[in-house]
Design a protein around this nucleic acid. Structure first.
Length: 294
DNA sequence: TATAACTCCTGAAGGC
DNA sequence: TGCCTTCAGGAGTTAT
């Protein structure tokens, strides 16, 4: 599943291969992929002739700055963005949802098996704190649909103390808060489980019951997990996540919690427990991550 | 207003 | 072999 490290890997690839190129055409192959776009398919056509001025990211949201407008991408659960070199013939793909052609002949294909991802044209708005809007841009303009998303843990403009304060103010469970993209963006189910395991915090602990020290440690572990995953190109379980060249990441080999329900904890040997939580699975060690002290 | 639950969707995997 | 059910989960929408 594409989370922050996977999306950043894709962003780097798009920046390397498409920055400065001019969009020649967009072909929409599945209406659901563009249903959230301003002006629908016609709105996307208005981007023809515009140049990619930056490829930016905040959390799991990607966008291209194009002369006062943004072309946004969200990969959902299974989205892929594959770039084909000028002149190369991209083979047909059963889940191709849209295709962008650039003036030099290169193509960007949006492939998405489960159709939770989308492409979207939008306007830009000023960020309230005056810092660059996201990774990969120096601009303080952010796409309107991304403006409500919190800064991510790799963003130098993120204030960790302020984040801990806002987390403690919420009266909910810590994993639910970590998955709240308005609080802090970029964390999905996989890296939440890993960070909570490293921080020895039960996913259902109440946020207002955690000390500032515990929360600070949790955010440090979360950041470390994301950095390590990014260094390895992200996590891949199957062909659903690849970078713009079609290559998979390797962080799956480093996972110590996610997907290890029923297996022995690498720290204490206890059996890892898997529970259903927020319509998704959550894996933790009942000994290392107790729900209550003692 | 804040929080929780529901919904969308497809294909792999497992059971029968 | 084929059909059916379950599972995976990001984020917007709806309900409480």
């Amino acid at each position: 599943m594409p989370e922050l490290p996977e999306v950043e890997t894709v962003r780097e690839g798009l920046e390397r291969l498409l920055l400065g190129k001019t969009l020649a055409s967009i072909t929409v192959l599945h209406p659901r992929a563009v249903q959230r776009s301003e002006g629908g398919v016609e709105g996307l056509v208005a981007l023809h002739g515009r140049t990619v001025e930056a490829v930016a990211r905040r959390g799991k949201f990607l966008w291209m700055e194009m002369a006062g407008l943004a072309l946004n991408f969200h990969l959902g659960m299974s989205g892929q963005l594959l770039v084909s070199s000028p002149g190369a013939v991209a083979p047909p793909h059963p889940h191709e949802r849209a295709r962008l052609r650039f003036s030099d002949g290169s193509h960007l294909r949006f492939i998405d098996q489960r159709t939770f991802g989308y492409i979207q044209r939008s306007s830009l708005t000023e960020v309230p704190d005056g810092a660059p809007a996201g990774w990969g841009t120096t601009s303080t303009l952010i796409p309107v649909p991304v403006a409500h998303i919190g800064r991510d843990l790799l963003d130098p403009a993120l204030d960790l103390e302020e984040l801990s304060k806002r987390t403690r103010k919420k009266r909910t469970e810590i994993k639910r808060a970590m998955l709240d993209q308005e609080l802090v963006s970029g964390l999905g189910n996989i890296y939440c489980d890993e960070a909570l395991f490293r921080a020895r915090i039960h996913p259902r602990r109440k946020t207002n019951g955690l000390s500032y020290g515990s929360l600070g440690g949790l955010w440090e572990h979360s950041t470390a997990v994301l950095r390590e995953a990014l260094a390895q190109g992200g996590t891949s379980f199957d062909s659903l996540y690849v970078d713009v060249d079609g290559a998979s990441g390797y962080f799956e080999r480093s996972l110590r919690a996610y997907g290890r329900g029923g297996q022995a904890c690498v720290r204490c040997g206890a059996t890892m427990k898997k529970i259903q939580f927020m319509n998704r699975s959550s894996t933790f060690c009942p000994i290392c991550q107790p729900l209550s002290r003692g």
